[in-house]
Design a binder for these strands. Structure first.
Lengths: 255, 255
DNA sequence: GTGATTATCGTCAGAGAGACGACTAAGATC
DNA sequence: GATCTTAGTCGTCTCTCTGACGATAATCAC
């Protein structure tokens, strides 16, 4: 840092890209927007945009999130990598991508953020519904993926960013209470279990899951009410407790 | 991304900062360099520097690492956040810091990388030995920390970056075999245990530790030889095995 | 009511961790 | 050389947690 003339620094563009995940219909889904212009015109991409010179990175991510989804998200001062949005969505920094050729137009460094949100009404992208969608992650990475265009699924390196975000989410719900970020403010143990099942793509034993989550101090707080919105016997409603780390963690089944 | 004229993007400076950790004398230490110029002249700071327009982020981190320590480190193509340097050092992306005022001169976004290295000879910073040192992490964060200058320990937000890097290292050796990155190519179980003890700042039971690490498939490979360099009964020498994730993890003692 | 569905409680066996005793094999000291 | 010290290695016991799975409870659809 001392070898350079600070007034002659190499100029970069800095963007934020958002991996917005939610659970819809037992499936982990990611928010994608359709690009209206070159490069990658017509491709699906992660929502995102340029960071302004007077805003922080998390702040820019919150702003883009609000613009693309209407989700209000708290922008945190400084460069703290983790935050919690008031609407229940969770926002945290994922990683930064800066391959010199990742954008053919210029040198762009993109700071990716991961957003975990409860199931939302259908997306809007600046009011244009046809240009945004919730894409099931399985479709994008499973064997049944329909390759698009010249074999590239997403614009730029967004396929890699999305994969990294999905992997982060999958591993993070193991040892943190973040799975509750996919749930509405009040939820049942069964609903939380279906979140785990959707994110991990596995089936969990309802009895062991119930014992585990209700037995972990601070994970769940009984909210008093019950609901039958899932059918069957009425289930207790819970809110997310104060605990953020789970010790011992939830164990993702092998294989 | 579609709302802006790409030719009029806001210009940022992008730097990499390195959190280089090693274990020396039973203590976790971080590499610091002394700043020779304003701002924060005379303060200790993390090594780092500007990213060039034609190099990737990990590549820039490797280059800076080599310049500051002589450690050769493999630069990875693209934006892959994790890599392994040939000299045995581990390099991975940590987080990105971009508060608008984090550098008083201009808008700088810094991508921090975490480097875990075996104990190295004393550092050199471009040949000037007095301007680089291994600082015990305990001195920087413990109660006994001697506040420097106007109460700020490190230049810029490097105190926060270092704290994040230390926390990443502490948690990552729980569920990965990365602790071996602090060891020479061949090491004993006791040496590995002392790494855990230094990084976590705890004392571990040698017998349980031995059972755990030798019983985890793929963690350690017997290299055949023995050594008495620690005194006492000769110990078997091991190399790092192929496993990268430990399941079940090493457990960091409570409290 | 009957059956389907979901929630919740209980039991049992096995894996793994913490505590700690016991033994081994080298160098250091007398 | 006898003894001490240091570290390494093997075992044992107990407790906790998990996975497998039986049993019961409370609602809805018919």
């Amino acid at each position: 840092m001392s070898r350079y003339d600070p007034s002659a620094f190499p100029p970069f563009a800095v963007t934020v890209d958002l991996v917005v995940l939610t659970v819809r219909d037992h499936e982990l889904c990611a928010l994608l927007v359709k690009r209206g212009e070159a490069p990658f015109q017509g491709y699906w991409a992660l929502p995102g945009g340029f960071v302004r010179l007077d805003e922080g990175l998390a702040e820019a991510a919150s702003r883009e999130l609000a613009e693309e989804t209407g989700l209000r998200a708290q922008s945190l001062p400084g460069s703290l990598p983790v935050g919690r949005a008031p609407a229940g969505a969770h926002l945290e920094q994922l990683a930064t991508y800066g391959h010199p050729q990742r954008d053919p137009r210029m040198r762009v460094v993109s700071v990716a953020y991961l957003v975990l949100a409860p199931d939302l009404p259908s997306p809007r992208a600046g009011g244009d519904a046809s240009s945004a969608r919730w894409a099931p992650v399985r479709e994008l990475f499973g064997e049944e993926r329909e390759e698009r265009n010249d074999g590239v699924l997403l614009a730029f390196d967004h396929g890699q960013i999305l994969a990294d975000g999905v992997e982060r989410a999958r591993s993070k719900i193991e040892y943190s209470s973040l799975a509750t970020a996919f749930c509405p403010p009040e939820f049942t143990v069964g609903e939380l279990r279906r979140v785990y099942e959707a994110v991990w793509g596995v089936v969990l034993d309802p009895r062991n899951f119930h014992r585990k989550v209700t037995g972990t101090p601070g994970f769940l707080l009984p909210s008093g009410g019950t609901t039958t919105r899932q059918g069957g016997r009425p289930a207790q409603l819970f809110k997310a407790g104060g605990a953020t780390v789970l010790n011992p963690p939830m164990l993702r089944p092998e294989a």
